[in-house]
Design a binder for these strands. Structure first.
Length: 565
RNA sequence: CGGGGAGUAGCGUAGCCCGGUUCAACGCGCCUGCUUUGGGAGCAGGAGAUCGGAGGUUCGAAUCCUCUCUCCCCGACCA
């Protein structure tokens, strides 16, 4: 690349709308440009990075036997009706109507179409397993795009789908993807870890997310410093801290105006852990009462996963209507409402709670004899410092970016689309599917987060837009020679041949982040020397101008080898 | 959708409360010329904005009022 002829529109200042690091850097370095909310053009350098990301993933997918295909991004409604997702996606789906009046969707994902192919083309268990994948533009009308290219409404996803005869096969396909993803992210230079996750809209089964820690992350992951427990906050569990048993006779006590756990426990002279929080939720059909220990918070995420998304916290009128008291004075005793309790309450039977009468609480209620708790579930929101469920160390919450997600789908889509094969007994069986995704542009953004240090970007060689940049400080001839030499040596090289001052060149170089730099200036050339710089470490090696190409090539090769899997 | 913030030249900003000869300005970038060249150069000259849009109030609106559009941030969703 000759810089003087290339489109690398760097910006001296942070654009107004950019707040997080990767967004600022990608914008300023001229990798991306906004078009609308959650819509970005990839400029030449941005494209080069995403192409390298793509190539790495493709190699690793092929290594596990994946077969690349390319499906349509546009699809008729009928497909989505079969799985029920025409409705399930709601406003997240971009919809349009074709000239014949047929409803169409811009695909947010491709389970349905892949399952359709499977239903048409796969006949026998002998053809399984299959792993099919593609790199495809996905369209999701996100409620809130953010962080530049971290969460957009149009993005490229590598999505793959596995087709197995049974769950044992699915486990193998899942594990293969786990491996392929680990290798891919490692090769890209991500410092990632894997967490347990929830399936969300996609399906039911087990799932894992590949995460990198980043300020701008949208997720919170809990990581145990003592063992290998790692989980997304959506599903993270924690052992309840031991709580003293409440020793009290059953008694109703006037607690005028005291609603919060702290106020009530303080007034009653008991621990917050000896109090039951009673949370009333409204659903379309009937209300739901959820109980949690006073010293913990409810995870609405978990609640919704158990009971569906049409839950809303009860208003004061609702509380009066169903429980006869205002919010803040509710209790589970003697109530005829579907009730579930968090596992944190299992440690004891005796608690204090609201009295279901305004300005009153009751101490000494018995969960086993006075309430009709249907089940104890994990409904608690884990927070930093909570006890690891596996080893008793203190969990740490970290903000993370989700690079990829793998999950076991089961037969939801194969059944919906009629994707079956004949098994060895001659019987039709629904194919067991898995689905696996990586956001390509997001990976680029996450790499900035991890490799931008001290006002300077240094891409890992594996994904760098170029491998070596020759900075010509008024030494056009020697620079051009080295640049040509690098290209002849098979190095992806850029030459900053612009007629601008050195400072401006260095500033742009730091922004763009080409990982190795050859600086050709009069100062070094007096002794026939040039500088070869490892941008990530800041290390500079002086070599003679004749050795510049070999030295730079050697550094590139070494990093490639070190990262190479 | 709830909450918060922002739209003024290509980019970043000031001006707005308190309407009017600093009201359309400043820095960067851009164009021309000369000088300069190891960390965002200097001098001189120049081009570039109906102040997001539409109404309104007023003798007069970037500034006040109403409506509206767009973008960003925080929350519910996801790669």
């Amino acid at each position: 690349m000759l810089w003087s002829k290339a489109l690398v529109p760097t910006l001296r200042e942070d654009p107004r709308q950019a707040e997080n690091l990767s967004h600022k850097v990608l914008l300023r370095a001229g990798f991306i440009r906004p078009v609308g909310s959650g819509l970005y053009n990839l400029l030449p350098l941005g494209l080069r990075v995403t192409q390298k990301v793509t190539r790495i993933i493709r190699e690793e997918m092929n290594r596990i036997g994946g077969q690349e295909m390319f499906l349509t991004a546009l699809s008729p409604r009928s497909l989505w009706d079969k799985s029920g997702r025409w409705d399930a996606f709601g406003d997240d789906m971009f919809r349009l109507v074709d000239r014949k009046g047929q409803d169409m969707a811009l695909c947010p994902t491709h389970e349905e179409i892949m399952a359709l192919i499977a239903s048409r083309e796969l006949r026998s268990y002998k053809e399984l397993p299959q792993v099919w994948y593609q790199f495809q533009t996905k369209f999701r009308d996100e409620p809130r795009p953010r962080g530049g290219v971290l969460r957009t409404r149009q993005f490229t996803m590598k999505d793959s789908y596995s087709f197995d005869l049974d769950y044992e096969g699915l486990n193998r396909s899942f594990n293969l993807h786990h491996e392929a993803y680990s290798r891919s992210f490692a090769r890209m230079g991500h410092r990632f870890f894997v967490v347990q996750a929830s399936g969300g809209l996609m399906g039911a089964g087990e799932s894992a997310e590949f995460m990198v820690q980043a300020e701008s992350g949208e997720d919170v992951s809990f990581v145990c410093p003592g063992c290998d427990y790692r989980a997304n906050a959506e599903v993270a569990e924690a052992r309840p801290a031991a709580a003293p048993q409440l020793q009290a006779k059953r008694e109703k006590i006037r607690t005028p105006g005291l609603r919060s756990v702290e106020e009530v426990s303080g007034f009653l002279g008991i621990e917050t852990s000896q109090l039951v929080k009673s949370l009333l939720f409204m659903r379309t059909e009937k209300p739901l009462l959820v109980l949690i220990r006073g010293d913990y918070e409810l995870s609405e995420d978990k609640l919704r996963r158990h009971f569906g998304t049409d839950l809303t916290p009860a208003q004061d009128e609702d509380a009066r209507k169903y429980m006869g008291a205002s919010l803040g004075f509710l209790g589970p005793q003697g109530v005829d409402i579907e009730t579930y309790a968090d596992k944190s309450l299992e440690g004891s039977d005796t608690y204090a709670a609201g009295a279901n009468q305004d300005d009153h609480h009751v101490v000494g209620i018995s969960l086993s004899s006075e309430t009709n708790i249907r089940e104890y579930l994990d409904l608690r929101a884990v927070k930093t410092g909570d006890t690891c469920p596996k080893c008793n160390a203190n969990l740490e919450g970290k903000r993370t970016i989700e690079l990829g997600h793998i999950f076991k789908l089961g037969t939801k889509y194969s059944e919906a689309m009629g994707a079956t094969v004949t098994d060895e007994k001659g019987e039709e069986r629904a194919i067991v599917m898995g689905s696996y995704g990586i956001g390509v542009e997001r990976s680029m953004a996450a790499l900035v987060d991890q490799h931008y240090k001290d006002d300077r970007m240094a891409w890992p060689v594996s994904v760098a837009p170029y491998e070596v940049e020759v900075v010509s400080l008024g030494e056009a001839e020697v620079s051009a020679k080295i640049y040509q030499g690098l290209r002849n040596a098979g190095i992806q090289a850029a030459l900053d041949d612009r007629d601008i001052t050195p400072g401006a060149k260095f500033a742009d170089a730091d922004l763009v982040g080409i990982p190795y730099r050859v600086i050709v200036g009069p100062r070094g050339l007096k002794e026939d020397k040039v500088d070869v710089k490892n941008v990530a470490t800041g290390e500079i090696i002086q070599v003679s101008k004749q050795d510049a190409v070999t030295k730079a090539a050697e550094l590139v090769a070494r990093e490639t080898k070190d990262a190479g899997i």
